[in-house]
């Protein structure tokens, strides 16, 4: 995780778990003593966005950037200019939590100058339990569409296959198989396997990719 590039762009199909991954990744980095900024660039969905947890994350020392209009429910596609600070200030580790699909990725366009080869990572979040990303071809289609719009390249895959709190080891292994097939076809490395903390002890020890334990920040206790 510490070897990832300073700017990490988190993309994927909507509903694949980008925001939970981003938040957990940010928390982990902050725990390792890094100076972390998390920019929520989601201008597509108005619910379940990482900025909803800004207070909690700021308590952990993470700088959270969302819209310059300070209300979680605002329905205008505005992103704070503050994003430029951690993009330019190399003392920050920056995570860009991008909205779903190519529509969400459009928000990346204005930052294209910062996506210089070798200076950023762009992680594709893959959830094999989402109807639209269950085959290699469909995953490649989403990846290409998002790359085209963002004018940046995917540098790593994340197997984030889950069924929320009902996730089983089988779900994760099915996603792992799909992610490895995508890796073989594209040469893009499977970098992370993200899974609920409670499931991790049951996972095989030889899984490819670093395991990122997930704590559900965005789901209330009464949710599945």
């Amino acid at each position: 995780m510490l070897e990832d590039k300073r700017i990490r762009v988190i993309i994927g199909h909507y509903g694949s778990g980008k925001s939970e991954f981003s938040v957990n990744y940010a928390v982990r980095l902050a725990e390792m003593g890094r100076k972390v900024a998390l920019a929520d660039l989601d201008v597509v969905n108005m619910y379940f966005r990482s900025r909803e947890k800004a207070k909690e994350l700021e308590g952990l020392g993470i700088k959270v950037i969302g819209s310059q209009v300070n209300t979680p429910a605002i329905e205008v596609p505005s992103i704070s200019a503050e994003v430029y600070a951690p993009l330019q200030d190399s003392s920050y580790d920056l995570i860009l939590d991008v909205g779903g699909d190519q529509v969400g990725a459009r928000a990346l366009g204005r930052y294209v100058d910062y996506f210089v080869d070798g200076k950023y990572d762009m992680f594709f979040i893959l959830n094999a339990n989402r109807a639209e990303t269950q085959t290699v071809d469909k995953v490649l289609e989403y990846m290409k569409k998002i790359e085209d719009v963002s004018r940046a390249k995917v540098t790593g895959l994340v197997n984030n296959t889950h069924l929320l709190k009902a996730t089983t080891v089988e779900d994760i292994l099915r996603g792992q198989k799909l992610a490895l097939e995508v890796e073989e076809k594209t040469g893009i490395e499977l970098k992370y396997v993200s899974a609920l903390e409670s499931i991790i002890p049951e996972l095989p020890s030889d899984l490819k990719g670093e395991i990122l334990p997930i704590k559900l920040f965005l789901r209330d206790e009464w949710m599945l």
């Binding site: 509903g15 339990n129 989402r130 269950q134 069924l163 929320l164 009902a166």
Partner: peptide
């Protein structure tokens, strides 16, 4: 088997 869907998508699929 079960898949993960957003409520609004599931309405359409149903």
């Amino acid at each position: 088997s079960k898949i993960l869907m957003k409520g609004n998508e599931a309405i359409g699929a149903a």
